[in-house]
Amino acid sequence: MTLFEIIVLAIIQGITEFLPISSSAHLILPSELLGWDNQGLAFDVAVHVGSLLAVMIYFRQDIARMMVAWLQSGFTSQQTDDSKLAWWVIIATIPAVVIGFLAKDFIEQYTRSALIIACTTIVFGLLLWYADATGKLRKNIYQLTWKSSLVIGLAQALALIPGTSRSGITMTAGLMLGMDRESAARFSFLLSIPVILGAGLIKTLDLLQLETQVDWEALFYGIGLSFVSAYACIYLFLSWISKIGMLPFVIYRLVLGAVLLGFVFW
C-alpha cells in the first residue's frame, strides 16, 4: 500500500470501529471507488491493535476498578456495582464467541457481499433510529442486569454479519432496554475490548502461519493512526451523543447504504 492508502484506511478503521456506522461497509468503499487492493492481514492486525489500545487507555480507570472489584468479589454474593459490571461484560461477550465459533465458515462464505452489507447498513440503521426515538433513556450503566446484558450480547452476535455494526447493534439493544445514550455507548465500548482482543489474536495466529514479508513501516502507521482516530472518536462521541442523539448516524447509514446499492446495481 502507498502511504496515502495506509493513512486513509487506518483512520477509517479507527473511527468506524466505535461509531454506529459499520466499519465493514466503509472498508469496501476504497476498493469500489478507487480500485485499491485488500489491506492485508498484517495491516488488519495493526489497526485492531491501535483501536484496542485507544479504548483500553480511555477506559483505563473503569477497567482497573472493574478488575479489582471482580477479583475481590469473584463468585461470592457480595457483589459491588463494578464487579457486577465486569460480570455483565463477560456474559455479554459469550454469545458472540459461541456463535462466531460455530458459524464462522458460513458467515465468511455467504455474508460478505456488497449487497448484504448495503442492506444491513440500511436495515440496522433504521432499527437504531427506532430504538433512539422510542427508548425511555433512563437507566444508567449500573442498572444493567444479567438478563439485559445477555440480550445485548445476543445483539452483538448479529454484528458477525458485515454491515450490521457491532457498536451500532449493541447501542440499539441498550436503548431498547431503556438505557440512556451515554450509558449504552459506554457499555458498547467496554464490550469492544474482549471482542477486538479476541479478533486480533485470531488474526495474529493466522498471520504467523503465512510466510510473507511484513511492511513494518505500514504497521507502525496503522497502529498509530488508528489509535489516535479511535481515541478521538470515543472522546467526541461520548461528549456529544446525549445532545445530538443517533439521528445523524442513522441518516449517514442510509446514505452510505444507498451508495453501496448503487455500486451493486449500477
Rank of each mutant, 00 (worst) to 15 (best):
A157L: 11
E32Y: 10
S183P: 07
I116C: 06
M67T: 13
I193K: 09
G262V: 03
T2G: 09
N38W: 03
L219Y: 01
L150R: 12
C119D: 12
S167K: 07
A103W: 13
S31Y: 12
I241M: 14
G74N: 15
R181W: 00
P30I: 07
F263E: 11
T2C: 09
Y235Q: 11
D180P: 08
W240T: 00
E17C: 15
W88E: 06
L205D: 08
A185H: 04
L225A: 06
W146Q: 10
A114D: 15
S239Y: 07
L3C: 01
A114L: 15
G35F: 13
S83Y: 09
D37F: 00
S229R: 10
E5Y: 06
W129C: 05
G135V: 02
M176W: 00
R186M: 11
Q143I: 04
A118W: 10
A96R: 09
C119I: 15
A92Y: 14
K203A: 07
W70S: 09
L102I: 04
T212W: 01
G14W: 02
A69K: 04
L71K: 11
L29G: 02
L238H: 08
W129D: 10
A118Q: 12
F101C: 00
E182T: 08
F75W: 06
Q13W: 07
R112T: 11
E211A: 06
I161R: 03
I11S: 08
A86V: 05
H26S: 01
S149V: 00
Y142Q: 10
A199C: 08
S149F: 00
L53V: 13
L102C: 02
D206W: 02
D215T: 01
S31L: 12
Q213A: 14
L27M: 03
R60H: 15
Y130L: 14
A232N: 02
L85T: 10
G35R: 15
I99L: 14
L261I: 07
S239A: 12
V68C: 09
F265A: 05
S188E: 03
P95M: 13
V89I: 15
P30Y: 12
D206E: 13
A218K: 14
Y221N: 06
Y231T: 01
G14E: 09
T111G: 06
L85H: 11
S226I: 09
W36L: 14
L71G: 15
V214K: 04
S22A: 14
Q213E: 14
L190S: 03
R60G: 04
L225H: 04
A218T: 11
L52Y: 08
A103Q: 14
C119A: 14
A46Y: 09
F4N: 13
G245M: 01
E182Q: 10
Q209P: 05
P248C: 09
A114P: 09
Q156K: 10
I196F: 03
S83H: 05
I90V: 15
Y130G: 02
S22Y: 05
F43P: 08
F75R: 01
Q61Y: 13
V214G: 07
K84Q: 11
S242Q: 13
L128K: 08
L260F: 15
R181H: 01
W87M: 08
Q13G: 10
S113F: 10
C119P: 03
Y130F: 12
Q61W: 12
D132Q: 00
D215A: 01
T164P: 10
L52F: 13
L29I: 05
T111V: 05
A69E: 13
L190I: 01
L127N: 04
P30N: 11
I94E: 13
A42L: 13
I6G: 05
